[in-house]
């Protein structure tokens, strides 16, 4: 990502000296003014409270059990000893990576599908947004019922077509597959519309030209379209990774982390630590661990994505 920024910077429109914008200070002021609202918002509602949280993570702080005590790395040690936190780290990564990869692949597919001209395209594009528009809590509760072995529509369909009936939410792997599947269903449309918007920004004649040159649909997709979409793919992929790492409502409403800890994710652990017991210090430490997981996962994904970009 960072390198892309540098590349673009080389061709800045305001780079060449013009009478009005030549003065350095004025330019700096302009930049600051443009950045101020966004940066200000982040400093105010994310960075500042997070710095506070870092501080808090070194304390044993629970308002119900005063006093507030300095414990150094105590909370971190406790977290790494905590079987729930330990097991939730691995599922968090699996959940987020599997979801993101599936969402990107399916999102691209849907975007290509909806980029074709056909009757009723506007309506279908609106329909595409439905899963995204349904509140996560409803999706979670709704899928829970759809997956019910006895009354669920999903199991009934499986039964009728394939003759299988799975008690999804009480088995280890099926429950994991179920939450990942639900999450993919929910968020794929979101990626699809971003990709769709990006597709529409690609000049049609570029693709036409390649088709005329004898490339088939698949070749022109991998040769032309995908490389042009790559910035969006990388950006949205990373975004989904990070965003989903911090989401807890699906797990909260669908499985409560169960069965056992099979679907426990870190964000839900933080929610539990902070709001079942008011362990603010401990919750802050787990938040920092989540942050570390986010950082490492995105670094790894970024690395993979860039290699992919190179091979293309």
């Amino acid at each position: 990502m960072v390198s892309t920024t540098a590349r673009a910077g080389d061709r800045g429109a305001f780079e060449r000296p013009t009478p009005r914008l030549s003065r350095r200070s004025k330019r700096t002021l302009t930049i600051l003014a443009l950045l101020a609202p966004a940066v200000g918002l982040r400093l105010f509602t994310a960075v500042y409270p997070y710095v506070q949280a870092i501080q808090l993570s070194f304390y044993d702080y629970n308002p119900a059990f005063p006093p507030k005590r300095w414990v150094g790395l105590g909370n971190y040690e406790r977290a790494l000893d905590d079987v729930v936190i330990r097991t939730s780290i691995s599922f968090t990564i699996l959940f987020v990576v599997a979801s993101t990869v599936l969402q990107i692949v399916l999102g691209l597919g849907v975007a290509l599908l909806l980029n074709r001209a056909f009757f009723g395209r506007g309506l279908v594009r609106a329909i595409n947004l439905i899963p995204w528009a349904i509140p996560m809590v409803v999706v979670a509760v709704g899928f829970r019922w759809m997956l019910d072995p006895q009354y669920g529509i999903f199991n009934d369909l499986l039964d009728r077509t394939l003759g299988v009936n799975i008690a999804w939410l009480i088995k280890y792997w099926p429950s994991r597959i179920a939450v990942i599947g639900t999450n993919v269903w929910k968020s794929t449309p979101f990626l699809a519309i971003v990709f769709l918007a990006a597709l529409q920004a690609i000049p049609q004649d570029t693709i036409e030209a390649s088709r005329v040159d004898g490339a088939n649909r698949v070749q022109s997709f991998f040769g032309i379209t995908l490389p042009l979409l790559m910035p969006q793919v990388v950006v949205i992929g990373l975004f989904m990774l990070v965003w989903q790492l911090a989401s807890f409502d699906l797990i909260f409403a669908m499985t409560g982390g169960g069965p056992g800890y099979a679907t426990q994710v870190l964000a839900y652990s933080i929610y539990q630590v902070a709001f079942t017991g008011l362990n603010y210090g401990y919750a802050s430490a787990v938040s920092m661990i989540l942050f570390a997981v986010v950082a490492v996962t995105s670094a790894v994904m970024l690395f993979i994505f860039r290699r992919v970009e190179v091979t293309l």
Partner: peptide
């Protein structure tokens, strides 16, 4: 239990682990 909510959620986990045959 003085930390009743947390203690209850531990029981929740243990019961779920055992009854779903994970432990």
């Amino acid at each position: 239990h003085p930390r009743v909510a947390e203690a209850q959620s531990i029981v929740d986990d243990v019961a779920s682990l055992f009854l779903t045959k994970q432990a």
